[in-house]
Design a binder for these strands. Structure first.
Lengths: 336, 336
DNA sequence: CTGAAAGCGCTTACAG
DNA sequence: CTGAAAGCGCTTACAG
């Protein structure tokens, strides 16, 4: 493959001129530029990104960090981010911070980032103090999605509002005995979203003068599997809740499946609502509060690119709207 | 941040010595190495990957290319690949080749690859002749997953065998009127898997002397949504199939949902089987032929690393086993 | 065992 | 408008 020197030689100009012509800088005569462009095309010249990076100090690469990669929410974000970055000639390098268990994750290190990326998009990763220090030292711009990072812009939804919408939907249907699944132990690192959602749940219940039965507030690792298993006790108990709100659609799906398996009709016997509008929520008829995950990924990438390309810095959060989507999994509360 | 020159100066040696010491090459005295290590740690020195790449010609970055990124199969592969690569100090850069429609994808270009990556892992991408030329010209090692690429190693399952297993399971349960969903138009670029699966279906049916009703062979874009919609006609027709085999679990889920919505019991009235063991297949009780997607991703990454690190070249395909997992969505054929 | 020097392939002031 | 030269921060023969 040819280098800039080859192009310069064939075009009969200096490498400096080739560099300027190819990057569209001014102070190159139209004729020269034309000639350089032709030669470059002919030689199938593509600048070495590695050499460009060393000389310019910019890699045009962005680190995308997430506590998991294979889950729908994160995979959807990654896909959106990658496309947006590429549209501006940037690339995404991946860091799956998943550890052996749900309750911890791998730390970000200087090795991952230093001179390797121009910036970071953090998908729902709550940073430790050491990590924040590192980011400061490296001077890397960061955009967060979901969990916010002190002093950095964050793209997210209003988790409280989303949960309010879900619970108020149930209350509006006449439900009074409502269970909750999706509580998370206090030491879990990715916490804002779970916490906001459960707080909104208890707030709305209190405002409506409805009791929150402690044994009806279930922990979970936020998988459909765990939700299916954990909800069985509540669904077989007596009295039984007439509705269950799940902090995510995947959990809602697990709960609905368990309900059916126990012979309960959804929604006639028990209503189930989630949050997300997960990939399968529409076919499965899950009532949910939709968030636009692709839009969040795109927005975060754009925020970072604005910073990188035009040094336009955004502070504060970008909060995207959510929307109630009523499907078959919720209905009027059964009369006792 | 400090450079190799800083470390050399503080340690009182040349940069060449620092380079050797840090990379664990021999011909460095233990005392010197020790001293260099200490200084490097003290200065928090991390070598610039960009400079290392330019000098060494190796980027330690691998391109992971896929026609979609947000679907479970691909996201699971990406996660497994990223972890395996990182365990060997390599990184994954992502290329989501998704286009506006299911039937085409973005092409691989020299711009994406040249001097940017050391190798490529292609997730179910059927290469065009131009792309194969490009890969030859660039001399980049490639490992495929799913769809194979002429002359390159490929990690996959035996799609025919997997489908045979699924269909034979149904036949063993006494089903004779069996429909199929997951056929793909001939011009779709990612084709081997769909084609192998449907051929296996018709083969097994023929061997069992069972008719394949053309109107019971349904096309699909392999989403649960499309499967849910497309299967309605077959499920409301008369006669009705007693079983439907879906080329993927996501389609099976869509079919099962439509069946239930139409008032059919699964599996008493109609059995549904898929292939994959998708993330939600266990909670939803979908009988399936399981493939280990994580193992495939890991194996592909390892194959590529073997090639990159030890120039150990593998030719031919690595075929991983599949396994029937019987759950609630299949049962004995109803007596007419 | 260690160092001086060339080289990787670009970009970027600085002259002209 | 164009070129010569320094520099980005490493690695790698080559001497010694």
């Amino acid at each position: 493959m040819s280098t800039i020197t080859d192009v310069a030689r064939v075009a009969g100009v200096s490498v400096a001129t080739v560099s300027r012509a190819l990057r569209g800088l001014d102070r190159v005569s139209p004729a020269t530029r034309q000639r350089v462009l032709e030669v470059a095309a002919e030689l199938q010249y593509v600048a070495s990104p590695t050499a460009t990076s060393l000389a310019s100090g910019r890699t045009r690469v962005v680190a995308v960090c997430a506590p998991f990669l294979s889950r729908w929410f994160f995979a959807t974000l990654v896909s959106a981010i990658e496309k947006e970055l590429r549209s501006q000639d940037h690339h995404a390098i991946l860091f799956d911070l998943e550890n052996d268990d749900y309750h911890s994750r791998l730390p970000l290190t200087q090795n991952m980032l230093w001179k390797r990326v121009d910036g970071i998009i953090a998908l729902d990763v709550t940073m430790t103090d050491e990590e924040i220090d590192l980011l400061d030292r490296l001077g890397l711009p960061v955009v967060a999605i979901g969990a916010s990072i002190p002093g950095r812009p964050c793209v997210r939804i209003d988790d409280s509002a989303a949960m309010r919408t879900a619970v108020e939907h149930l209350i509006g249907l006449g439900h009074r005995r409502i269970a909750y699944i999706g509580d998370v132990p206090p030491h879990v690192p990715h916490v804002r979203t779970p916490r906001d959602r459960i707080h909104a749940f208890t707030d709305v219940m209190a405002e409506a003068d409805l009791p929150v039965e402690p044994s009806w507030v279930l922990g979970s690792d936020w998988t459909a599997q765990a939700a299916a298993a954990d909800s069985a006790a509540v669904l077989t108990g007596s009295p039984r809740p007439t509705a269950i709100v799940a902090a995510s659609d995947e959990m809602a799906i697990g709960v609905r499946e368990t309900a059916r398996r126990l012979g309960l009709r959804v929604p006639q016997d028990v209503s189930v609502v989630g949050i997300d509008d997960f990939q399968l929520s529409d076919v499965l008829g899950i009532t949910t509060v939709r968030q636009d995950v692709t839009a969040q990924g795109r927005a975060a990438a754009r925020l970072l690119l604005d910073r990188l390309l035009e040094d336009r810095v955004c502070t504060g959060d970008l909060v995207l709207p959510t929307e109630l989507v009523v499907r078959e999994s919720t209905g009027p509360a059964p009369s006792d």
